[in-house]
Design a protein around this nucleic acid. Sequence first.
RNA 1: UCCUCGAUAGCUCAAUGGUAGAGCACUCGGCUGUUAACCGAGUGGUUGCUGGUUCGAGCCCAGCUCGGGGAGCCA
Length: 463
Amino acid sequence: MQKAVVKEIYRETEKFIQKRIKVSGWVRTIRSSKAFGFIELNDGTFFKNLQIVFEEDLTNFLEITKINISSAITVEGILVESPGANQAFELKAERIEVVGPCDADYPLQKKRHSLEYLRTIAHLRPRTNTFAAVFRVRSLVAYAIHKFFQEKGFVYVHTPIITGSDAEGAGEMFRVTTFDIDKPPHNEQGAIDFTRDFFGKETNLTVSGQLNVETYCMAFKNVYTFGPTFRAENSNTARHAAEFWMIEPEIAFADLRDNMDLAEEMIKYIIKFALENAPEEMEFFNKFIDKELFTKLENVVNSNFEHVSYTKAIEILENAQESFEYPVRWGNDLQTEHERYLTEKYFKKPVFVSDYPKEIKAFYMRMNDDNKTVAAMDLLVPGVGEIIGGSQREERYDLLEKRINEMGLHKEDYWWYMELRKYGGTKHAGYGLGFERAIMYLTGMSNIRDVIAFPRTTKNADF
RNA sequence: UCCUCGAUAGCUCAAUGGUAGAGCACUCGGCUGUUAACCGAGUGGUUGCUGGUUCGAGCCCAGCUCGGGGAGCCA
């Protein structure tokens, strides 16, 4: 007998119709009458379910009518055309074996659950339509990102998760140590003696792979990282997590414009990839999560992203007929309300804001000729806000050294980073894409906790 | 961390300061093509925690815990 999976049955129906097949999966719902019943079977390979019809000629008919949702079963039968309205075919069961019964206290019902409740049962929520769709899309988009960069010849670099450089400056860090935290060793000055710790120095979980990946950029020309990142910020929002994934491409012999063009091409590529490779899931998001999703995504794919300088953006905001809570002033960073206005109301599409005042940006960003702004860019998208942050890097040794000093950093901490500027340093640029934020944008999900399998956020590391 | 709203059955939600309820889930029964199947009956509660006001608190007050929304920080 032919074994089949639900995805093949939907995609290549002609291969299975009128044939005896064997399918294994979980019961999503069951409706039974005195002499017959229906099971919606999901085997995990496909978003949609396969309808099983069973009748009282089954030797275990009574047992089957009583099984609970989420029981694991194996069904043998013939795939036939369905007289019902909602499906083209169904499996007429000749034999159903319960391979893994499900207890009656199973916490998921056939009805809708709140996303908040489902977070409390993170081990079971991938069995729901919403999370099945989210995590299949997440998987596909991760693949699409690799595919995009690999097809362009980029080299995938695994930058370290544990870092000894505490000066990356991108946020609060999680300490990595093997010390007994109740009694760490002290040196003669009375301070904690990190020379006796595992690495012989203070170490933390990385907040960004950028500085490390720049070294490989100077060897391979075009590189990217794709890995987990950790921020110990006490953030409590729908867009922040303590552990998240980031994609950080870095391109040599390239400037800020090349950088933005790459970002735009990548965003369009992954949107198209998701629409083509997960049509059922995307349809579901458009119908139940965000009714404007397809309109939004098609608008992004078919339009050119807007470009605006920070200075011009300030002008737009100053002239806006809008009362902002925070004042708009050249030199201040853009607030969330300002970003939302720009991308959602003014341009109504993704917009790159570039060339920010040097005071509000990182030390490694390239100084512009005006000596006031740096070659930085943020990509703002409607609904999610900042999804990408990047810059052209300062490749001039003396200017980099000057910025490090101005910002009160210690140049000894960056000795290897600075040497890149001595030994064949060249123009280069890169950006960071928050992977979860991209998934949120693609699916319409509005909380980052719902696009991470087991989210780690302030006061929550369950599962 | 700040502002704001909330926490009642397994879930989603009701309940003038006066006997804590419904739908779904679950159990039992019925039903010959269902589509969140349907019909009937039943089981199910320390009203988040601690204290206070009151003859009496799910409801009023205080503190705490956890969650939602917004803000800061950022991706």
